[in-house]
Structure formats: C-alpha cells, structure tokens
Design a protein around this nucleic acid. Sequence first.
DNA 1: TTCCGACAGTGGGGTCGCAAT
DNA 2: ATTGCGACCCCACTATCGGAA
Length: 298
Amino acid sequence: MKWDGVRAIAHCTPAGISLWSRNLSDITGSYPEVVTALTEITDGRTLLLDGELVAPDDRGAPSFSRLQQRMHVQRPTPALIEQVRVDYLVFDVLGVDEEVLFEDSYRTRRAELADLTLDDGVRVRVPPMWSLTDTSAEELLRVATDSGLEGIVCKHGDSIYEPGRRSSAWTKVVLRLTTEAVIVGAVPGNGANAATFGGLVLAAHTPEGRLRCIGGVGTGFTAASRRSIRAALDQVRRETTPLDDPPPAPVARTAWWVEPVFVADIEYREISGDGLLRHPSFRGIRTDKTPEEIGLPT
DNA sequence: TTCCGACAGTGGGGTCGCAAT
DNA sequence: ATTGCGACCCCACTATCGGAA
C-alpha cells in the first residue's frame, strides 16, 4: 500500500536513533515519540530502516495535511504530539549490524524485516505486503480506495535496493480523480511560459450557485496547447473577476481574468482542507459541458 | 534508428520561520 | 502586528539529450 506521508530513513544504533528525509536533512527532532518508540522496539540493535511517517486521521487513513502541522516543527510540544499523532510505517530494512543489505533482493529484505519483529502495534508498524501472484492489482487498488490510501507500490521481489535512484523495479500506481472546472483566469508564467500563462485559475459553482475558486492548474499542457489556450482566453478577457467569492490572496494579486466560458477537464489526487485541488493536472478543454452545469467536485 | 532514463524547468497546495513593511 | 517570501514537504508534467537497445 502507498501511504500519504513523508519518506524517512531511520538509523538505529545503541547510541541513539536518527531520522533522515528524502533529501538527507535530519528530521529527528520533529518526531520525538517515534524516536522513543524506535528506541524501545529496536532495543540497542544497529539497524537502517526505510519507511513512511504518517499522521492518521479519525478514520485511520493517513492525512498529509495533518502531518504538515508537524513537519516543520523542530521541537513539538506535548500538546501538539497528543493532537497530531505520527506513526512510522517500516517497509524495508537496508542494514542490520555491520551488514549492508542493498544488494539483497526485496524478498530477502522483507523476510529479514519480518524476523526483526519491529511492529509495536502503535507507533512503529510493519504494514503487510501482498503478492500479485495471489491477489490481483484490481483487488489491491480497491482495498486502497476503501481504506483512503494513495494507491499501491508494486515492487519486484528480485530487485536490489538502489539508493538515490528511481528504479523501475518499484512502480507506483496512484489513485487519481477527475473533475470539470470553469476557467476564470490565469496567472502570468515565467521563463518559457512568459508569453502564454503560468497556470489557469479554476472555479466551480457551489450548491447556492456561487462561483468559487477551486485552485489552479499549471501542468499537463504542451507548448502548443499553452499557445492555443492563451489565444482563446485573449478573446474573452475582462477587467474584473467573475468569481463570487474572493480567491486565495496570491491568486488575487497576480491573476488576470476571463469570462467564465471555457470548461477544463482536470485530474487530481484529492481535495484539500480549503476546498482546493491537490496535485492537479490539465487534461484538455471540454466542449460538451456548459460552465453553468459545473458544480464543486465531490 | 528508435527508445528509455535522467535531468532541467515549469507549475500546483500547504506549513513554518524570518525579514520587510 | 501583519504581510510577503523562501525553504521544505508532498507532487504532475513536458522538453531535451545522451546512451542503451
């Protein structure tokens, strides 16, 4: 299963535990309860672990927005630790004592991980893996959907661990949603996009019929599609925003506006707490829908 | 000759810390 | 005290280039 959190390498030694982010910054200080739990469960063993730090919501599904409240806090208060619980999900072991396991197969490393019995049932857990020979990918994706997870990661059982490399031996399948959105404006672009636009400002109608900003999209375009969209938008420019509710401040500062006549097909991961699209990408312009019938994504 | 992987460049939401206002 | 902005986190995606197939 793919968990929506922060990747973390745990270096466990008799002298102490340290946690490291993807780009090798020391994030130990941000997660004292995880360090405490790892200290107890590793019991002085020297280990190098790979896993994901996650902040489960009330349903137990990892919530990245919750985790963000902890990510940048160097020394969290007990109240914050109580309020935003963080767990460490271990999915790989890269070293035991003096032995480096990079060259061992994933199958071997998982067997080693199971032998270490690191799961304390609370802070540190070793989530189960499934074999695609026993369970179909469709079944696993359904489990991921039902559990509120990001998707699945398929790892080749014979693959070695390749530090710093996005090897094809690990393939993620991310669950994504689609929606339609009304184009209400654009923000200026930089560099190669200076002549067209940076991103499109998107909106949808609330149940009350108010046109509200649901975020922006700045990827998914080709150079040619940027040019043709810019040309189309130039035909329907207007001085004032067509939005009924004020957009986020950075958008309001920089955007230029158009009549709400174009509908975009958008793919995204989820809706953020502020009602904005997270990880949006542009799929195309829809001509079979009118702006009036575009409601908020559910 | 074609294809693939890595990298650079552009864009999104969100949080915190710090400097400017 | 408030605001703006960069640094990190999570990313999606296109364009390009060199080497592998």
